[in-house]
Amino acid sequence: MAAPTINEGAAVHHKPFFLWRHLNKLRWLTLIIVFAMLVLLPFLHIYQTYTAAHAYDLLSPGEKQLYDVMESIAAPFVSDPAEDLDAVKGNTWSGSFWGFKISDPLAALGQVAASLSLYWPFLLTALVPVLATIIFGRFFCGWICPATFIYELNSNFASWLRWAGIRVGNRRFDKRIKYGVLALGLILSAVSGSVLAGVVYPPAIIGREIYYTIAQGGLGAGTIFFLGTLLFDILVARRGFCRYLCPGGALYALLGRYRLVRIRRIAETCNDCAKCNVVCEFDLDPLRDGFGQECNNCTACIAICPTDALTFTIRPSDYPEQGPGHLGQLYRKQQATEDTDAAS
């Protein structure tokens, strides 16, 4: 008889803000926008070069088609395409927005390692991502990374394969391997005098490979590597590269260790269904309050939770383990035994 009263009280005090469970859709939207921009920008650049050369009459039919499509996309936003379209350039590895430059923290760290010197104008371009990571944790991995877009689709593809009866890899390794990859990448960068950390970092690879494919007339070496990671994810471990090997993910996880905005479980409304653990791409343990520095605030667990038992909180560390959810069987049994113990 005690359980319903607890639930009513919990429902009043611990109802998460209703929009949190829709953030996962917003996340997919941002991923799609980032990826679409990476595809669009090289085409816009080609269009820019055509306009700068006043060469419409000299273009081949295919090039004219590209010109027309890009003109229809850009015309509402710019008056002088050759100059104005320079406003947004680049990729997630390093980009320029109306003259404001933003770089990946791994790019900054890799360049410091490779050149063994500090060039502050460049290092400061990584300041905004670093601050955002200190507040929101490893959010880049879930919300922006163009490789995540493909990796999550790849995960879904793997689950279709599993549904079709084909065995896909679901091995588990030590998540700390990626910190070793980060250290090794930086050491190799320093030894070779070249930013090699960026050569094994999927978002950087995706950004430049899309650009190479569209504007440079061919894929680069990174594509083969990226296809290798996709195969690794299907055959060996789900989301294996991000979980266990990604050097940038390692850096973001370290920076976001004491993040302020994190997801927490509300034990009062949790029913131990473990859907959050199944849906978590990073193999975390929301069911037992195990988020840790690896969580990228992707909100997939919030979106799937059937009892609204996951929400955001602002604190620099995870909640200590709260025990079984109060709507679950285990908790009720515990309560029953405690009640009988108290009675006897």
Partner: peptide, 19 residues
């Protein structure tokens, strides 16, 4: 020094008018 300083972001190529 150039190889060490360049991060390979491709921005220079992406703004080059004559490509």
């Amino acid at each position: 020094a150039f190889t060490a300083a360049c991060i390979g972001c491709g921005l220079c190529g992406e703004v080059c008018p004559p490509r």
